[in-house]
Amino acid sequence: MSKKREISLKSYRRRRENKGLLFILPSLLGVSIFYIIPFFRSLGYTFTQGIVHLKFVYFKNFTDLFQNSAFQTALKNTGIFILAGVPILILLSLTLSLLLEKESRHWKRFALLTPMVIPGAAFLLGFRSMFDSYGAVNTILSKFGDFNTDFLGKHSFLMLILIYLIKNVGYVTVIFSGAISTISKEYLEVFRLESSSGISYVRRVLLPLIAPMTFFAVVIAIMDCFKVYREMYILYGDIPPKEIYMLQHFMNNNFLKLNYQRLSTAAFLVVAVISFLIWLLLRLQNRFRPE
C-alpha cells in the first residue's frame, strides 16, 4: 500500500513539474531567443575573423586578446576595482545595517537608496562640483593651505571607488538589514548567556546565519562593479585615465570600431570569469552554511 502511494506521489510530482515547465516555456523561449542563442552566436564569433567573409581562426582571437595591451590594462584595472571595491562595499553596508538594526524608523534605511533613484547625470554634476579642481572640497582645503588636489585626474581610481560606494551602499545595506531582521532574538539571548561581546556575536552567530544573503550581496556587488561604466563615461568619455580604463571601455570602444570578434572574445571571457566567481562563491556558501 505504501509502495503504491509512493509511486503515485512520484508521478504526481512529475506531472506537476511538467506543467510547471509548460508555464515557464514562454519566458524560456524569450530568454533563449534574445540571450542564449545570441550568446552562442557570439561564442562562434570568437573563433572567426571578418564581418562579411568569416574566416575560422581557431584560438587566434584569444591569443591576440591576451597580448593586447589595452585589454591587459582593462583586465587588471577591473580586477583591482573588484578586489578593492567589493570588500569595502560589503563591510560598509554590513556595518551600516548593524547600526540601523535597532532603528525602528525605516525611512533612514530607505533614505540610503536615494542615490539609486537620482539620475546619473544629476548625481555626477553634484559630484563634479564637489571634487573638481575648483570644486567645493578643493575650495575648503585651500583655506588651510596649498591643498589643491587633482581628485578627478590623479586620484581617479579613488573617486571611482567613492562613486561605486555612494551608488550601491544603500541597496546592499537594505539587503543586509532584511537578512538581519529575520534572525530570531532567541539567538542573541542564548548567546548572551555565554558572552556579552557584540563583535563575537556578529562573528560567531550573525555572520554564519546571514551567510547565504552575504553571498548574494557579494554577487550583486560584483555585478555593480560593471555597472559603474555609465558614470565613468559621463565623467571621462570613452578614454578615461589609464588607471580606470575598464573592461567595459574596452568592449564598448571595440564595438564602435567594428571589432566584433575582439568584443565577443572579451565578453565571453568576462562571462566565464564571472561564472567561475559565482560558482566559487556558491561553493564557499555551502561550506559556511550554519548547521
Binding site: N68, I239, P241, K242, N259
Partner: peptide, 24 residues
Amino acid sequence: TTGKLTLEDALTQAEQNLSLRLNE
C-alpha cells in the same frame, strides 16, 4: 599657472590615452 602640472605628466597622460585608443 600653478606649476604643479609638468609637461612630463601631460605627455604621459596623452601617450596613455593614445595607446589605449590605438590598441583597442
